[in-house]
Design a protein around this nucleic acid. Structure first.
Lengths: 212, 212
DNA sequence: ATCCTATCGACCAGGGTGGTCAATGATAAT
DNA sequence: ATTATCATTGACCACCCTGGTCGATAGGAT
């Protein structure tokens, strides 16, 4: 594993990408080290020279991915923004940027824990749990509740707004499926997204508070 | 395949359940006929006595599932209900009932088409497409648009409401993961669901139209 | 010339694959 | 009682893929 970290950045990334993709698509058990080395363009032996086993590789990827998400996404969330929807708005942008920088990390983390049929090293397990916990807190902490209508349960409004945003993102993902990220002009989609956010404000915020 | 249809209902269902589950969990290619026969409690030979090949079995399941969903779900949707949210409400109940009757069909259809690495028989392909198309139309046709606020795009409101409902259902599914369906008292969850629907009405419908 | 390290891919035993088929049991027809 | 038909089984097949090993290299440094 120290051997792996001595590689040039580019080769490291190619191997990580291949492995993340393979695990994301097939889960831990059915992922194939043969496909990984082929995709990464290295000899079979090297993978087990860098990582002592498939499980070792998997745990390395887990820790790598968790660190990546914390550094490139979580740490950048602006907790000073007290408008819930505005916070989600710029959070979505951060997530998009992080995803553009390394798509596979997010795919991997999506299936991670669901497909690992062994117990992860405790420090990784813990890292994962605290990440989930903190991530949730960062969305809801210090939100200005006075913006919300008085006649709806704010906790429920939170959830409805999040589900709406996730729904939009999923639909967009599905619609753009197959196209290469680089070839897409995302501006119109961001515009559309903002329109949805405006509707959410109209719907869940007090009348007087709607336009800043 | 005519051989299969001559079986007693119970045995048929056991085989179908085993197969649907296996394909839903592993996709077409990585699904194992060995696991299917073990789960179904029949000898290996019988599966290929009833269905001439794995592919044959898969296509039978596809058609069976599509027919099931049409008969037990789509055909029961009440198009006379012009209140969009009310229609979604009773549609959710129908879907829940159909899912309770045969959970695996829905899981199978969720992965179906994504994992089949061959081209399906054209009549099945067509059946699938018309189902998707009709299913969508049945949600939006003859909806009373006058219920909605004038200051939001109704099409976008449709989508936000659907995403919200899907979000709730997904969260519930995730929360109840692992518990046996039969052991759960769903009444409180329906109550909670209705509360969310009331909030959606408050948010997306005109002031005057909110309560019945 | 001697080490050290990086790299490859043929190779391994083990396990799983979809599918077949001879054997057997069961049921009905003669 | 005998034969014919059908239902059912699981051992078996050739094949493929698995995670992991290891001897053979090559190249650079000493």
């Amino acid at each position: 594993m120290e051997k792996f970290k001595g590689l040039d950045e580019e080769k490291q990334q190619k191997i990580l990408d291949a492995a993340l993709l393979e695990f994301a698509e097939h889960g831990y058990k059915k992922a194939s080290t043969n496909r990984i080395v082929k995709e990464a363009g290295i000899g079979k032996g090297m993978l087990f020279y860098y990582f002592k086993s498939k499980k070792d590789l998997y745990e390395f990827l887990a820790e790598y991915s968790l660190d990546f998400v914390v550094e490139k996404y979580f740490s950048k969330i602006d907790m000073a923004e007290s408008d819930f929807i505005e916070r989600l708005k710029h959070t979505s942008q951060l997530k998009f940027e992080a995803q553009t920088e390394n798509k596979n990390v997010f795919n991997f983390l999506g299936t991670f824990m669901l497909t690992a049929d062994f117990k992860l090293a405790p420090h990784i397990q813990k890292k994962y749990e605290t990440m989930q916990q903190k991530g949730n807190a960062m969305l809801y902490e210090d939100v200005d509740l006075s913006l919300f209508r008085d006649d709806v349960d704010v906790q429920k409004a939170f959830k409805l707004i999040r589900w709406s945003i996730e729904g939009y993102q999923n639909e967009l993902l599905h619609k753009l499926q197959g196209q290469s990220m680089a070839s897409i002009d995302f501006d119109p989609y961001w515009e559309e997204f903002y329109e949805y956010l405006e509707i959410l404000k109209k719907s869940f915020y007090k009348e007087g508070k709607r336009d800043q």
